[in-house]
Design a protein around this nucleic acid. Structure first.
Lengths: 350, 350
DNA sequence: AGCGAGATTTAAAACGTTTTCATGATTCGA
DNA sequence: TCGAATCATGAAAACGTTTTAAATCTCGCT
């Protein structure tokens, strides 16, 4: 049935290149087809006969062909790459790991691959997106640590480059995001402390400048105001601070008058450091003081299982971000489909 | 002085494209030069007159030109990208972070950028290098968790693709690596336990299959044999195990006869988990038992400062790997220059 | 004047794809 | 039997660079 009229010898070819990576031309020469046809066949174009498609596919596999990404990029402008921006505070522990495995899962089975653009020099966060967009390093970007007036969001929105943020902004132009409801988390966590009889909760706040820090604070304040109790926002430290600094600050605070009697911690390391600081002052968790923390890994559960936590599923978050980004790349603009607010699971026994 | 005989009007051009990203042709049209010349000028080729170089540079900046990486790649085969392979187990707080900031530092000021290729699906580790080399995603690769007969090393060596590993192999063909002397670390740490009077140290081993696990074990065994004391290699867990598993295993071991009286921990989370397990059994660090651990971050120092540690500077390691890789890419083959073994700093008061 | 040697600049090919447009077969309706 | 429609393939242009080989220009020198 297969009757190539052109001389389609598969082994002996006259002059052309035999060394180097196999390319479309290699396949074309072997099969006796034109480069165009081969390209189409590999793309499973319907206009190419099923027979030819199969033959091309077979030869491609046999000689170990894989398309040159650079050439595809140059021609199509598409990269088949998703870039994730990560910065050193997102300790590739836990946060990065969970987010990344979620994203990977969402992209599995698609033609997209993930790369991470780390920002471990102290460059501004907008430089990375600049680099990516200007050099066409990716078809879409994912990043977190979103700011209320995030310059990355403004830039990307303006040029219409697909992206998803972890966290919201306060910009008027809507954009794709996936966020955890940190207000509710913080509100419920603080209420829990108060329900346990604590009268002066302290908040270890998120790093200033990020939207989620405001949400944490807002939830905290709402709870203490409702209860009409005293409160404190620990100064000088935040969730980005080294554990040692948090420990020292907590310890120091207890040498001063009128210390807090409980803590709302936005992270596990923060909780551990707080416990250590309190311990140094001779105070015991669950007796003289309480802690509620956000849980994103299994560290705290293994080391200090008695700390009460509310879970944030970062893997699910990553998966959502991946899915949403694919939709955005596909042209989806419906806000309802590209904005997600994930609700904290409040433990049932609270 | 500058007298282009060709019509070099800078604003009014007849027919050609005015929209889209500026390209070499755009600059050529504006300056009245040929594309070739512009390309050369931007590359600071000496054959182009200083005057022309300057003019081209100015125009390039003015119109916000940046070269199309895809085209450069296609033509030159070079990518100006370094890929770092990371896998989910390297979450050990800070590993990724420290290594990455070291690498970034080494690459600062060069034309290279780092990307991370995460392997958060459970694909085999050789797939990532395959993807990178086949798709020309990078000019060089860095990875860790090296195995004695690492297939990635074999593959890359064979095709001559530049790479550096964190950790050694046992392959006969030499390759670029940066490694920490885990034998000496383990040996000295174990000696320290014995010097403190412990008679039955336990090793929590590295995950089977990786070269460094063997080194840890060898160092440990050398020390206990020298001292002629009892020892134990805790079964069922390793440094990759979740903290909860390590804690439980330690706890369980103490319910059985003849338990160890000290621990050599290759990581900080492992040490924390061990302490928690022992604590649960009512045992106190420094009294009933001792621990020596490897320190790679500031977590342990903040939470359990009394644990004795030997430091491994992963940022320095990353920096070395970056430097070595650049040399390899530059063609360096001298083994002395591309193989580094970093010595543990033994605390002076031991 | 003429000629070769630098010194500058340029035209054209190439990298490996995808895409636009055209072409040669085959089949179909009348 | 003849176009028209359908099907399968192909030639050539294009994407934006770099590179090879060649062209032009400018001098100094005979």
């Amino acid at each position: 049935m297969a009757d190539p009229s052109k001389p389609a010898r598969s082994e002996d070819n006259g002059q052309p290149a035999r060394r180097g990576k196999p390319t479309l031309r290699t396949i074309a020469e072997i099969t006796g087809l034109a480069v165009t046809t081969v390209s189409r066949a590999l793309a499973e174009a319907p206009q190419i006969s099923a027979d030819t498609r199969r033959r091309v596919r077979e030869v491609a596999i046999e000689i170990g062909y894989s398309p040159d990404r650079a050439a595809q990029r140059l021609k199509t402008g598409r990269t088949n790459v998703i870039a994730v921006l990560l910065d050193p505070h997102e300790e590739i522990l836990g946060y990065g790991t969970s987010i990344m495995s979620g994203i990977s899962k969402a992209l599995q089975g698609t033609s997209y691959h993930v790369i991470v653009m780390p920002n471990f020099l102290n460059t501004t966060n907008v430089e990375a997106v600049n680099y990516i967009t200007r050099n066409s390093m990716a078809d879409g970007v994912i990043f977190s640590r979103t700011e209320p007036l995030d310059p990355r969001v403004m830039l990307l929105s303006e040029i219409g480059f697909p992206f998803v943020t972890h966290g919201r902004t306060e910009l008027s132009t809507p954009h794709a995001y996936v966020d955890y409801d940190n207000f509710t988390f913080s509100y419920q966590a603080t209420r829990r402390l108060i329900a346990k009889g604590r009268r002066k909760p302290a908040l270890i706040s998120g790093p200033a400048g990020f939207t989620f820090a405001g949400h944490l604070q807002h939830g905290f304040m709402t709870a203490v105001r409702e209860a009409g109790c005293a409160y404190e926002i620990l100064s000088g430290i935040d969730l980005d601070s080294p554990a040692g600094d948090i420990r020292d600050r907590v310890r120091q605070r207890y040498s001063e008058p009128d210390p807090p009697d409980s803590f709302m911690c936005g992270g596990e390391v923060c909780a551990l450091a707080t416990i250590t600081g309190m311990s140094d002052c001779g105070l015991t968790l669950g007796q003289e003081y309480d802690i509620v923390a956000k849980q994103t890994s299994h560290l705290l559960g293994a080391i200090q299982p008695q700390v009460e936590t509310i879970y944030e599923d970062l893997t699910a978050t990553g998966e959502d971000m991946g899915r949403v980004l694919l939709q955005r790349i596909g042209g989806e603009t419906d806000v309802d489909k590209v904005q997600m607010l994930l609700s904290p699971q409040i433990p049932s026994n609270w």
